[in-house]
Design a protein around this nucleic acid. Structure first.
Lengths: 304, 304
DNA sequence: TGTTTAGCATTAGATTTTCTTATCAAGGTT
DNA sequence: AACCTTGATAAGAAAATCTAATGCTAAACA
């Protein structure tokens, strides 16, 4: 049983253009019999003559013409495949699905997105904001390409690359501004407002503040940093906030922000991906851009 | 240097669908290593990973997805090639460029065209009406596929297949109706109207009528049979007309038609094509249809 | 926490395909 | 009629591709 091969189509195209077996063969860098045989096999496979051979001329048959149109389309598509590859090879390109935790996304993305466009113009970033466990799941399912989360994850099969560190600031109501900053470890006894369960930032904050219970505490859990800050502004308690979010959130409520002294709480933000992903190299490139964007966002947050 | 092959694309497609090397290999009726190697080579050629392999899953990379769309298009086109061939193989189809001499075309085509459509629905006939030498030239240049001409041509490299014979009738002015029909050989001395130079029918008529001079004779050469008949109707002389044209032309002028007695002039009409044409078999099929149409046209012409 | 299993990669040797070289045959040309 | 030109064919060489056997890694299991 015979099969059409691309080689045959390439030879066919050359013969169509040169109308001469010898010259077409030269153009293909093979000998004339090699080309003759392949053309013959193509004709056998198709069951019809593609060329009319006479001593003087080699000409397409009318069937050959019909085939020729399709063949040049096919060959063009094949060559485009390599082009697509070359373009993609140049750097990150195409669709990239990035997960980001909610305590980073709103503060990082405004800086990151324009930077990404500048660094990888052919990259279409699709951002998904949700909590770490879900991000990990989607990463493992192949629904995300990578994610920006707090390290360490220590998930099997997931590669982690640290991007930057950010500290946590204390958010108190405005009237507490200037009063001494309590030690982090002491916060557990205060009216500490936390994100609702599932947010990694909740766990991180709790760890620092030596809060034991992970029970939901009515009225003290917020669904976003904004909510928490608003609650603090309303005098309900105090909370921690990642450095990066500080400036944005502080503007929106009557609160005071303080750095901790002594043991400073903080976390490491990193880029993670499946160990098996062939994009690893590209992710390292990407990390540079995210890192820069992150540090920029931190700087901006600093200048409040 | 590596090259993309259709085999690689077929394996790629299978792997994309099965997301499993072993099963994809089964589907392609090869062993798993064979498929693995080809996929790897395709990735090497393109310079980028198409699939992400983990212990659990085989998944397209985002680059792989881009490639996949194009690849299925390509494979579809390839399969269509065979379809095109199968359709064409069934019989005459596609464009067919047919030359016809002017003393046949107007009388044969009205019958032939509908018959052709009936016999070969997928055939698109393109008819070119001009004189024999030009038809032969165009045939040899590959600008025509075949031609309907008077035989014999005796051109090197041209195959001839007789279709039917037609006799020539004498056309005289109406008032000569009933008067004895002269012998063909005697016509040379009459006011014999002929087609202008280049028409084979002119030469055929001259041969029968023993006219020697092939010089243009002012006022006695017409550019078409219609013109000649009109001239006869106007009483300018007499002429010969092929049987097939008789009825159509007789209707348009006050003339009388007579059959010759004794040596009856006539000619053989045949289909001709380049000996090298791979369509020879199809032309023989085609000849049957033309023959039938020709005999029909003759019959009709008869019943005047 | 070691063991097993699943599944892709790798290797070596066999097989098939494709190529080159040499030669033929058919049409034109001189 | 001898001679080119040019495509087809044949035989052996080279290259590509396959199978079979095996390795390796990561997940699943016990």
């Amino acid at each position: 049983m015979l099969n059409i091969t691309l080689k045959q189509l390439r030879y066919f195209e050359a013969l169509r253009l040169h109308e001469h077996f010898g010259r077409a063969a030269d153009a293909c860098a093979v000998t004339q019999p090699a080309l003759s045989v392949q053309i013959k096999e193509l004709e056998q496979t198709l069951g019809l003559a593609l060329f009319e051979r006479s001593a003087r001329h080699v000409r397409l048959t009318s069937f050959g013409e019909t085939v020729a149109e399709r063949v040049s389309d096919i060959l063009r598509s094949i060559d485009e495949l390599s082009d697509v590859a070359r373009a993609a090879e140049a750097g990150l390109s195409g669709r990239l699905r990035v997960g980001i935790i909610p305590t980073i996304a709103p503060y990082l993305l405004p800086t990151l997105i324009p930077n990404l466009r500048g660094a990888f113009p052919d990259l279409e970033g699709q951002f998904r904001e949700t909590q770490t466990p879900r991000l990990v799941q989607e990463l493992q399912d192949g629904r995300l390409d990578c994610a920006i989360v707090a390290l360490p994850l220590l998930e099997a099969g997931i590669e982690e690359l640290p991007l930057f560190e950010e500290t946590f600031l204390l958010v108190r109501s405005e009237r507490e501004a200037g009063t001494p900053v309590p030690r982090v470890e002491a916060l557990g006894r205060e009216n500490l407002l936390l994100l609702e369960d599932g947010h990694c930032f909740r766990d991180q904050a709790m760890a620092f503040c030596k809060v034991q219970s992970s029970e939901p505490r009515e009225g003290l859990d917020g669904s976003s940093l904004s909510t928490l800050v608003q609650m603090v502004g309303a005098g309900i308690g105090m909370t921690l906030i990642p450095e990066m979010a500080a400036r944005v959130e502080a503007r929106a409520a009557p609160i005071s922000l303080s750095r901790f002294e002594g043991r400073v709480p903080g976390r490491s933000i990193g880029l993670v991906w499946r160990k098996t992903s062939p994009l690893a190299d590209q992710f390292r490139e990407l990390a540079q851009v995210i890192k820069t964007a992150g540090l920029d966002a931190l700087d901006e947050a600093e200048c409040q």
